[in-house]
Design a binder for these strands. Structure first.
Length: 192
DNA sequence: CCAGACGTTGTT
DNA sequence: GTCTGG
DNA sequence: CCAGACGTTGTT
DNA sequence: GTCTGG
């Protein structure tokens, strides 16, 4: 599920360097992250903290349901997300995300070991920023674990997602097949 | 029309 | 604020 | 996933 | 038999 991931400090340093952004994050966004935790997001010209699970700006109160993922297929239709792809795109920075495989907690990360960028959307409610991760159909490889996966952008796409036109951004929303590896978390490495 | 929702995933 | 389900 | 529906219109 | 709503 795209509901549990990991971010290490060193990857935030890397991302800041790659995107030429100032690094200024509290320690609360590092480690294993669950919905409603503070996570590291990247907006145009800014790396910052946000609550994981989007709260629409028009909400009367904190929603009773989690908005941790946004389906790419219906992004532009749903009341909670409509319009955000035009003005409120962001990246969610992670090292890898967790899936359950044969009852083992399994970390899925990039084969090249680099930091990973999820395409996401953010909003602001009563001064607080929050964000959601866009999901797509799984690649063939990921489908052995799950039938959805986060939209993972490549290094040469992340600036287009942040700074490009809406059309350029929309063109990046499609199912991918990134080079990934999986390893069980309890020491034993599994080979996939 | 108008009240009520507004979201996603999917075995541990 | 806007959609949709009854 | 799996149980339950499987249809349409829309103000008095 | 197949879709969808929970």
């Amino acid at each position: 599920m795209c509901n549990f991931f990991k971010l290490l400090h060193k990857s935030a340093i890397q991302a800041a360097k790659r995107l030429k952004l100032e690094f200024d994050l509290g320690p609360e966004c590092f480690g294993d992250k669950n919905p409603t935790d503070q996570i590291c997001i990247i907006r145009p010209h800014e790396m910052t903290l946000a609550r994981w699970s989007l709260i629409p700006s028009w909400s009367k109160e904190v929603p009773g349901v989690l908005m941790t993922n946004a389906r790419s297929e219906t992004l532009e239709e749903k009341p909670a997300y409509r319009g955000l792809v035009e003005t409120n795109r962001c990246l969610i920075l992670v090292d890898g995300f967790y899936e359950w495989f044969n009852k083992h907690k399994t970390l899925i990360s990039r084969e090249d070991g680099a930091e990973m960028y999820f395409a996401g959307l953010w909003d602001q409610w009563q001064g607080e920023k929050s964000a959601t991760i866009i999901t797509t159909a799984p690649s063939e490889w990921v489908s052995q674990f799950q039938d959805r996966m986060p939209l993972i952008l490549e290094a040469d796409e992340i600036e287009r997602w942040l700074y490009g036109t809406v059309e350029e951004a929309r063109a990046l929303i499609y199912p991918r097949d990134p080079e990934l590896v999986a390893e069980t978390v309890n020491g034993q490495q599994s080979l996939f």
